[in-house]
């Protein structure tokens, strides 16, 4: 690949991710509204929200780390997008595999955690404490799922995983139990009810977002778009054969995001302990079962 091509991908992949992420967010809000028998937000509402936050005339900063945290958060997700193969563009996927990607996805969380920490607001710190606890909860089933998938495909390279699925069959069909466990895990990763412990508006005043104003909050909204996109693309690449073209890739992403959203609306919020117990019991059990099947199949 030429340098120009790579540079183009470096710009284009995050930009596409952001745009698709906007519509994923819109879909989430729309579906929630429709289930609650509301009309829901207008078509470009997520975009208006972000622009409005960025053009706020005043915003507070609690110090350099508060700013740096936001930058690290944006940078971390932009990096993750470049290591995530999409139809027609594989970015740097061959230079860093799925393990790298999973750990790259933790960098923005760390950035957020640092930024929130500097705000000196205990609500924010409690939010981060809960977010990290939730991460410990959902990453265990998720890692089992990843391990099972990698064992099955015999590689940790995402492009190869996608190619294998295209030549054989989708991971969803060859590893249905792992796919189910993975779906539950990504539901928790998205931080939607009942796993919404770290936002918890009525309890800890939206946790990490408590002291975020103007473009700080706007960057968090951008992060939300990128986060939903990254998680859905990862799931699609592992179990739904990635994308042949953009025309089947995008519907898959929306489908993956749709399932958690449909479920989430009918749930209240779990306690932190219950999130841990539930995620360590059911999805982890399912994932281990799926892993055992993969190992026994050879």
């Amino acid at each position: 690949m030429s340098g120009q091509h790579i540079f183009l991908e470096l710009i284009l992949m995050p930009l596409l991710a952001f745009m698709i992420g906007l519509f994923l967010v819109l879909m989430m809000r729309k579906v929630r509204a429709r289930i609650e028998r509301r009309v829901g937000p207008p078509f470009l509402q997520p975009l208006w929200d972000i622009i409005k936050l960025y053009v706020k005339k005043m915003q507070i900063s609690h110090g350099v780390i508060h700013d740096l945290g936001i930058i690290m958060l944006l940078g971390g997700y932009i990096t993750a997008e470049v290591f995530l193969p999409v139809p027609g563009m594989s970015g740097f996927t061959s230079q860093g595999d799925i393990i790298t990607l999973i750990y790259l996805m933790m960098v923005p969380s760390l950035g957020l955690a640092l930024g929130v920490g500097q705000c000196a607001n205990p609500n924010g710190s409690i939010g981060i404490s809960r977010a990290l606890t939730a991460m410990l909860a959902y990453d265990i089933p998720f890692i089992v799922v990843i391990a099972g998938a990698c064992l099955y495909y015999g590689t940790t390279d995402l492009t190869e995983i996608i190619a294998l699925q295209k030549s054989q069959q989708w991971g969803l069909l060859s590893m249905p139990i792992l796919a189910l466990a993975g779906l539950i895990a990504i539901h928790a990763m998205l931080g939607k009810e009942p796993f919404e412990i770290y936002v918890a508006p009525a309890e800890i005043a939206t946790g990490p977002m408590v002291e975020m104003s103007g473009k700080y909050l706007g960057s968090l909204f951008v992060m939300q778009c990128l986060q939903i996109y990254t998680i859905t693309v990862l799931y699609t690449s592992l179990f739904l054969g990635g994308g042949y073209t953009w025309f089947d890739f995008i519907p898959k992403l929306f489908l993956v995001a749709l399932l958690p959203v449909m479920i989430t609306v009918i749930f209240p919020r779990y306690k932190t302990d219950d999130v841990l117990r539930w995620l360590w019991k059911w999805p982890t059990g399912l994932a281990l079962l799926g892993l055992a099947i993969v190992v026994l199949q050879g």
Binding site: G40, T206, V210
Partner: peptide, 13 residues
């Protein structure tokens, strides 16, 4: 929400 109005929790937001 159809007008783009959402409740928020803290004065900063």
């Amino acid at each position: 929400e159809r007008l783009g109005i959402q409740p928020m929790v803290t004065p900063r937001q």
